[in-house]
Amino acid sequence: MSTSYDDVLAVVIQQIRSTVNEDWIEDFEIGPETRFNDDLELESIEFVKIADAIQNHFGNQLGIISWLSGKSIHELIGLSVGDLTGFITSALATPEA
């Protein structure tokens, strides 16, 4: 059974909110266009925590960090919630090796 993009998006947003866990994020609108660097002010260590939380949720290793390490500096700067969601959706659709 595959998980839809929208289902994954809801999980990603939920994990961002619970990992950051500060007052402003409760009301902060998060969507596919939201960027981790500029809009959320997340530092890399927080991003790793969110990636771990998402991987725990889905119960398998999605390879989020190795996916990131293949990105250019320009891609890292512009990295959005939608980019991450798209990667996870396709990783979940690919049978584990």
Partner: peptide, 9 residues
């Protein structure tokens, strides 16, 4: 105005 990694670039 820029922040984070973008300011480094």
């Amino acid at each position: 105005q820029v922040r984070g990694l973008e300011s480094v670039r």
